[in-house]
Amino acid sequence: MKALYCNELIKLYQRRTQWGMLMVDFLAVGLMTALNHAAFPALTLSNNWLNDVILGTTLAVIFIIITAATLLTSEFDRGTIRFLLVRPHGHTQILFAKLLVLLTSVWAHFTVLWASSYLFNWLLIGFFPIASWDRTYQFGQYMISTAFVALFFATLTLLFAAGMRSRSLAIVISLSGYFVSSLIGSLLSAMIRQYEWLKWNPLNMTNLTNLLGTKNHVSAITAALGLNYNQMFLGLVVYIVLFYAGANWIFGHRDIP
């Protein structure tokens, strides 16, 4: 497994596009920090953090979806899937190595976002104003929640990619899902009051970051979505596992051209 992970990691990070994506994350945080600082010079980092990284996290989720689609479908596009599958490793091991690299990619994107937020605030404000552990905790919780939402869409993309083997199709469907999820989610949330079981629909889980913030805000959103943070986090993890299991089953049961 270590060898397969190493191979996947090399394949991914030998591509310039991966480094380009991380650079865009970095620059997006820099741009937003500068804009926030220019618009609201009185605000400190403790208040600004979320606004600084919000563009970066959106871009990171998009990049992670693209990476998830590329990891599998590029093997089919190039024909290198045969190169992989004629070695003494099962389909499950090969896909799991790809999942581990996907997790590494999620970690890399969010680490860059976090670190660049610190860096640009230090450059523009001149210090690391960790105002309180509470705020730091909230920021961390936001980043981790967003990372799990990204992983939800990434494993969904793997599922599409295993089924369709078309990179562009997997990217288009997953990105569309990502962008319309909040719209459909809000429509479904209106129906949750009528049909309670709808609160477990997968798109509802992508509202995880909406359950962060002040107590009043969280209470109102929890009531609307029918789930509290822990329930939604658990639901998100269950869907991630289900999507991955589905991708693994499809990958192992289809003929290789």
Partner: peptide, 15 residues
């Protein structure tokens, strides 16, 4: 078929 963006040697290393 190989990973075109890698060298021949790197492809063999993968294998």
């Amino acid at each position: 078929q190989f990973y075109d963006y890698m060298t021949g040697y790197q492809n063999l290393q993968q294998y």
